[in-house]
């Protein structure tokens, strides 16, 4: 065991970089906002109904969390929503002009590429999925595959359980042997449990 690890074990202070990944509109920024508002008193990202609102990686450092007898110093990385395609016309349905929509699509494309390159840089990942939809798709499978190959521990946060049409049970069934925690990033339900699970993952 190295000196750093011995010191960390003695003080039970652990620094962890958490990547928050997922599809567009899954609620990643809402979750990050809930955590940071609770622990450092401020929200970090804007949330609107327009897809690809988060188009740059946002890194929030020094989020101190006491959990399970450990003091965690979290760096939370909120990543742009993952997508395999970006159709600028979709933004025009939200009232953006054609030029604005094209520009947003360009920024969103860069954001997706940034997010895809972020897998290697995190210690633990939260995969946020929308539990009102069927998230068993190529994006989430690719995401899980990438994390498993890199041996990066992850938790699937089945978000939006505050909604009547949420089906967290179906999400657990779909990802049967994967760690799934139903949460509501909006109301905060089970978010503490999610943090506890992260704490367990990092030993």
């Amino acid at each position: 065991m190295g000196l750093l690890q011995r010191v960390l074990r003695k003080t039970k202070k652990v620094s962890v970089k958490i990547g928050v990944f997922g599809e567009v509109g899954a609620g990643k920024t809402t979750l990050v906002n809930y955590i940071t508002k609770n622990y450092i008193g401020e929200e970090v990202g804007s949330v609107t109904g327009i897809p690809h609102e988060t188009r740059r990686i946002q890194q929030i450092e020094n989020v101190h969390v006491r959990c399970d007898g450990k003091e965690l110093n979290l760096t939370i990385v909120d990543t742009p929503g993952l997508a395999t395609y970006i159709d600028y016309r979709g933004f025009m349905e939200y009232g953006l002009s054609e030029d604005e929509a094209i520009n947003r699509a360009k920024e969103a494309t860069k954001g997706v590429v940034e997010a895809l390159k972020e897998f290697d840089k995190v210690d633990v990942a939260i995969i946020v999925v929308d539990s009102t939809k069927i998230p068993f798709n190529q994006i989430n499978m690719m995401l899980i595959g990438n994390l498993e190959i890199r041996k990066i521990p992850y938790i699937i946060a089945a978000n939006k359980i505050d909604r009547d049409d949420a089906k967290p049970g179906a999400i657990k069934e779909i990802f049967n042997n994967k760690p799934v925690i139903p949460i509501s990033a909006l109301t905060g339900e089970n978010v503490e449990k999610l943090i506890e699970e992260i704490s367990k993952k990092i030993g």
């Binding site: 997508a83 395999t84 970006i86 494309t109 997706v112 590429v113 895809l116 190529q138 990438n146 190959i149």
Partner: peptide
């Protein structure tokens, strides 16, 4: 493999414009 899919998506996204939006995988 997942890493190859990731690399493919990154490469493909460079070509996104007003006629080509990217790819879909099924």
């Amino acid at each position: 493999p997942p890493q190859v899919q990731t690399e493919l998506i990154i490469r493909i996204l460079n070509f996104v414009d007003t006629n080509f939006f990217g790819i879909d995988l099924k």
